[in-house]
Computed example of a mutant assay.
Amino acid sequence: MEIKAALTLCLAVLFPILSYAAIRSDVPPAWLGLVDFLLFSVILTATRLPACSGSRKAGRFWPVAAAISLCLTVFYLRPDMMIYFSPIGIGLILSCIFLMTLTPGQEPLITRFARLERRGVLPEELRIYTRKLTWGWAVFFCLLALETALLALFAPVETFLLFSNTLNYALVGAFFVIEYIYRRIRYRHHSHPSILQLIATVARSGVIPPSKI
Protein backbone atom coordinates (compact mmCIF):
# COMPACT_ATOMS: atom_id res chain seq x y z
CA MET A 1 0.00 0.00 0.00
CA GLU A 2 2.90 2.35 0.62
CA ILE A 3 3.99 1.87 -3.01
CA LYS A 4 0.48 2.64 -4.21
CA ALA A 5 0.35 5.73 -2.01
CA ALA A 6 3.73 6.91 -3.32
CA LEU A 7 2.56 6.39 -6.92
CA THR A 8 -0.65 8.33 -6.24
CA LEU A 9 1.35 11.19 -4.73
CA CYS A 10 3.75 11.16 -7.69
CA LEU A 11 0.92 11.32 -10.23
CA ALA A 12 -0.77 14.12 -8.28
CA VAL A 13 2.44 16.15 -8.41
CA LEU A 14 3.19 15.39 -12.05
CA PHE A 15 -0.26 16.25 -13.41
CA PRO A 16 -0.09 20.04 -12.90
CA ILE A 17 3.55 20.10 -14.02
CA LEU A 18 2.80 18.25 -17.26
CA SER A 19 -0.31 20.37 -17.78
CA TYR A 20 1.75 23.54 -17.45
CA ALA A 21 4.29 22.19 -19.94
CA ALA A 22 1.45 21.44 -22.36
CA ILE A 23 0.00 24.92 -21.91
CA ARG A 24 3.40 26.46 -22.72
CA SER A 25 3.71 24.29 -25.83
CA ASP A 26 1.63 24.22 -28.99
CA VAL A 27 -0.83 21.59 -27.76
CA PRO A 28 -4.36 22.64 -28.87
CA PRO A 29 -6.64 23.58 -25.93
CA ALA A 30 -9.14 20.95 -27.09
CA TRP A 31 -6.66 18.17 -26.26
CA LEU A 32 -6.06 19.67 -22.84
CA GLY A 33 -9.82 19.58 -22.44
CA LEU A 34 -9.79 15.88 -23.29
CA VAL A 35 -7.22 15.23 -20.55
CA ASP A 36 -9.40 17.15 -18.10
CA PHE A 37 -12.38 15.10 -19.23
CA LEU A 38 -10.53 11.86 -18.53
CA LEU A 39 -9.60 13.10 -15.05
CA PHE A 40 -13.22 14.17 -14.52
CA SER A 41 -14.41 10.69 -15.53
CA VAL A 42 -11.96 8.94 -13.18
CA ILE A 43 -12.98 11.10 -10.20
CA LEU A 44 -16.68 10.70 -10.94
CA THR A 45 -16.41 6.94 -11.35
CA ALA A 46 -14.31 6.54 -8.19
CA THR A 47 -16.82 8.47 -6.09
CA ARG A 48 -19.87 6.63 -7.43
CA LEU A 49 -18.58 3.07 -7.37
CA PRO A 50 -17.39 2.04 -3.91
CA ALA A 51 -17.28 -1.64 -3.06
CA CYS A 52 -20.73 -3.03 -3.76
CA SER A 53 -22.29 -5.62 -5.98
CA GLY A 54 -25.15 -6.43 -8.34
CA SER A 55 -27.99 -3.98 -8.74
CA ARG A 56 -26.46 -1.51 -6.27
CA LYS A 57 -23.40 -1.14 -8.45
CA ALA A 58 -25.57 -0.74 -11.57
CA GLY A 59 -27.64 1.89 -9.78
CA ARG A 60 -24.51 3.85 -8.93
CA PHE A 61 -23.14 3.65 -12.45
CA TRP A 62 -25.97 5.24 -14.44
CA PRO A 63 -25.19 8.84 -13.32
CA VAL A 64 -21.56 8.21 -14.32
CA ALA A 65 -22.63 6.93 -17.75
CA ALA A 66 -24.93 9.93 -18.22
CA ALA A 67 -22.23 12.43 -17.24
CA ILE A 68 -19.59 10.78 -19.44
CA SER A 69 -22.03 10.65 -22.37
CA LEU A 70 -22.74 14.35 -21.95
CA CYS A 71 -19.02 15.12 -21.86
CA LEU A 72 -18.39 13.06 -24.99
CA THR A 73 -21.20 14.89 -26.78
CA VAL A 74 -19.76 18.26 -25.77
CA PHE A 75 -16.29 17.19 -26.85
CA TYR A 76 -17.61 16.02 -30.23
CA LEU A 77 -19.70 19.14 -30.93
CA ARG A 78 -17.62 21.81 -29.17
CA PRO A 79 -14.20 20.42 -28.17
CA ASP A 80 -13.08 23.90 -27.14
CA MET A 81 -15.72 23.93 -24.38
CA MET A 82 -14.25 20.90 -22.61
CA ILE A 83 -11.47 22.99 -21.12
CA TYR A 84 -14.17 24.87 -19.18
CA PHE A 85 -16.62 22.06 -18.42
CA SER A 86 -14.37 19.54 -16.68
CA PRO A 87 -12.45 21.75 -14.19
CA ILE A 88 -15.67 23.32 -12.92
CA GLY A 89 -17.27 19.89 -12.63
CA ILE A 90 -14.31 18.47 -10.74
CA GLY A 91 -14.46 21.26 -8.16
CA LEU A 92 -18.21 20.84 -7.65
CA ILE A 93 -17.96 17.04 -7.35
CA LEU A 94 -15.19 17.21 -4.75
CA SER A 95 -17.08 19.85 -2.77
CA CYS A 96 -20.24 17.72 -2.81
CA ILE A 97 -18.29 14.67 -1.61
CA PHE A 98 -17.30 16.48 1.59
CA LEU A 99 -20.70 18.13 2.04
CA MET A 100 -22.59 14.83 1.73
CA THR A 101 -20.67 13.42 4.69
CA LEU A 102 -21.73 16.40 6.83
CA THR A 103 -25.44 15.59 6.60
CA PRO A 104 -27.31 14.02 9.55
CA GLY A 105 -26.52 10.35 10.01
CA GLN A 106 -23.20 10.59 8.17
CA GLU A 107 -19.68 10.63 9.56
CA PRO A 108 -17.62 13.58 8.29
CA LEU A 109 -15.13 12.40 5.70
CA ILE A 110 -11.97 13.61 7.46
CA THR A 111 -13.28 12.23 10.76
CA ARG A 112 -13.66 8.81 9.15
CA PHE A 113 -10.10 8.88 7.83
CA ALA A 114 -8.76 9.97 11.22
CA ARG A 115 -10.68 7.19 12.97
CA LEU A 116 -9.40 4.58 10.52
CA GLU A 117 -5.83 5.81 11.02
CA ARG A 118 -6.22 5.28 14.79
CA ARG A 119 -7.98 1.89 14.47
CA GLY A 120 -11.34 3.20 15.64
CA VAL A 121 -10.16 5.26 18.61
CA LEU A 122 -10.49 9.01 17.98
CA PRO A 123 -10.14 11.58 20.79
CA GLU A 124 -13.04 14.02 21.13
CA GLU A 125 -10.96 17.11 20.31
CA LEU A 126 -9.77 15.48 17.09
CA ARG A 127 -13.33 14.49 16.23
CA ILE A 128 -14.42 18.12 16.54
CA TYR A 129 -11.40 19.35 14.58
CA THR A 130 -11.83 16.85 11.76
CA ARG A 131 -15.49 17.81 11.36
CA LYS A 132 -14.45 21.45 10.98
CA LEU A 133 -11.72 20.39 8.57
CA THR A 134 -14.29 18.53 6.45
CA TRP A 135 -16.23 21.80 6.21
CA GLY A 136 -12.99 23.55 5.29
CA TRP A 137 -12.31 21.20 2.37
CA ALA A 138 -15.92 21.50 1.17
CA VAL A 139 -15.74 25.31 1.13
CA PHE A 140 -12.28 25.24 -0.42
CA PHE A 141 -13.35 23.13 -3.41
CA CYS A 142 -16.52 25.21 -3.79
CA LEU A 143 -14.40 28.36 -3.99
CA LEU A 144 -12.13 26.71 -6.56
CA ALA A 145 -15.17 25.87 -8.69
CA LEU A 146 -16.39 29.48 -8.39
CA GLU A 147 -12.96 30.85 -9.26
CA THR A 148 -12.78 28.55 -12.29
CA ALA A 149 -16.24 29.63 -13.46
CA LEU A 150 -15.33 33.32 -13.14
CA LEU A 151 -12.10 32.78 -15.07
CA ALA A 152 -14.04 30.95 -17.77
CA LEU A 153 -16.34 33.96 -18.14
CA PHE A 154 -13.89 36.84 -17.90
CA ALA A 155 -10.28 35.68 -18.37
CA PRO A 156 -8.31 34.79 -21.51
CA VAL A 157 -8.14 31.08 -22.24
CA GLU A 158 -4.42 30.98 -21.42
CA THR A 159 -5.06 32.40 -17.94
CA PHE A 160 -7.96 30.01 -17.39
CA LEU A 161 -5.80 27.02 -18.32
CA LEU A 162 -2.95 28.20 -16.12
CA PHE A 163 -5.22 28.24 -13.08
CA SER A 164 -7.52 25.30 -13.83
CA ASN A 165 -4.80 22.87 -14.93
CA THR A 166 -1.83 23.96 -12.81
CA LEU A 167 -2.18 26.59 -10.09
CA ASN A 168 -5.40 25.21 -8.60
CA TYR A 169 -3.77 21.80 -8.12
CA ALA A 170 -0.84 23.54 -6.46
CA LEU A 171 -3.32 25.28 -4.15
CA VAL A 172 -4.86 21.91 -3.23
CA GLY A 173 -1.40 20.56 -2.43
CA ALA A 174 -0.57 23.65 -0.38
CA PHE A 175 -3.83 23.35 1.57
CA PHE A 176 -3.08 19.69 2.29
CA VAL A 177 0.51 20.26 3.43
CA ILE A 178 -0.18 23.41 5.48
CA GLU A 179 -3.09 21.75 7.28
CA TYR A 180 -0.94 18.70 7.99
CA ILE A 181 1.83 20.84 9.49
CA TYR A 182 -0.70 22.84 11.55
CA ARG A 183 -2.28 19.62 12.86
CA ARG A 184 1.10 18.17 13.83
CA ILE A 185 1.89 21.35 15.81
CA ARG A 186 -1.56 22.14 17.26
CA TYR A 187 -2.24 18.55 18.33
CA ARG A 188 1.32 17.43 18.95
CA HIS A 189 0.21 15.55 22.07
CA HIS A 190 -1.48 13.06 19.71
CA SER A 191 0.23 10.72 17.26
CA HIS A 192 -0.17 11.47 13.56
CA PRO A 193 0.54 9.24 10.54
CA SER A 194 2.86 10.30 7.77
CA ILE A 195 1.50 11.84 4.57
CA LEU A 196 2.08 8.58 2.69
CA GLN A 197 0.20 6.66 5.39
CA LEU A 198 -2.65 9.16 5.10
CA ILE A 199 -2.82 8.72 1.33
CA ALA A 200 -2.73 4.95 1.80
CA THR A 201 -5.67 5.16 4.22
CA VAL A 202 -7.70 7.18 1.73
CA ALA A 203 -6.87 4.77 -1.10
CA ARG A 204 -7.69 1.73 1.02
CA SER A 205 -10.97 2.95 2.51
CA GLY A 206 -12.41 4.77 -0.49
CA VAL A 207 -13.84 8.27 -0.66
CA ILE A 208 -17.46 7.41 0.15
CA PRO A 209 -18.40 4.67 2.64
CA PRO A 210 -20.57 2.11 0.77
CA SER A 211 -22.93 1.60 3.69
CA LYS A 212 -23.81 5.28 3.87
CA ILE A 213 -24.66 6.10 0.24
Rank of each mutant, 00 (worst) to 15 (best):
F40Y: 11
S41E: 06
C71G: 15
W135T: 04
L44H: 08
A21S: 15
A138M: 02
L72P: 02
G54Y: 02
E179C: 03
D26G: 12
S86E: 07
P193A: 10
R188S: 14
Q106Y: 02
C10Y: 11
A51K: 13
C10Q: 07
Y182R: 15
A67I: 05
T8C: 14
Y180W: 11
P123A: 10
T47K: 00
L151W: 03
T8A: 15
I3S: 13
H192L: 10
R56N: 06
A6S: 13
S69F: 10
F140A: 03
S211L: 08
A51C: 00
V177M: 09
Y84G: 02
V27G: 11
P16I: 01
C52Y: 02
L70K: 02
L99D: 07
I88M: 10
S25V: 05
L109N: 01
P63L: 03
I195E: 13
Y182T: 04
M81S: 14
A203E: 14
P108A: 07
R24G: 08
P63C: 03
T159P: 00
A170R: 09
P16G: 06
I185E: 13
A22L: 15
L72Q: 12
F15D: 05
S194E: 13
L11P: 01
D26N: 12
F61V: 07
G120Q: 10
L9H: 03
L196P: 03
F61Y: 11
V172M: 13
P156A: 06
A65L: 15
F154E: 08
K4V: 11
I185T: 11
L7Q: 12
G59C: 07
A30T: 11
P29R: 06
L92K: 07
L102G: 05
R188T: 04
K57A: 15
Q106N: 08
Y129L: 05
S95I: 00
I43D: 06
F176H: 14
V42S: 06
P63I: 08
L70R: 06
S69M: 07
E2Y: 09
L18V: 14
A30Q: 13
E147H: 04
L14A: 15
W62T: 10
T8H: 07
Y84H: 14
W137H: 03
R127Y: 01
P108M: 05
C71L: 10
S55F: 09
A155S: 14
L14E: 09
L146R: 00
L144M: 12
E125R: 14
T111H: 01
T47D: 11
I213W: 08
R186H: 07
D80G: 11
L34E: 09
V177E: 09
L70H: 04
M1H: 09
I3G: 09
K212V: 08
T8Q: 07
T148Y: 05
E124Q: 06
F163R: 00
F37C: 14
I93C: 01
L133W: 04
L38Q: 08
A155H: 01
G173K: 01
A138E: 02
L44D: 02
R112Q: 08
G105C: 01
C52N: 13
T130N: 09
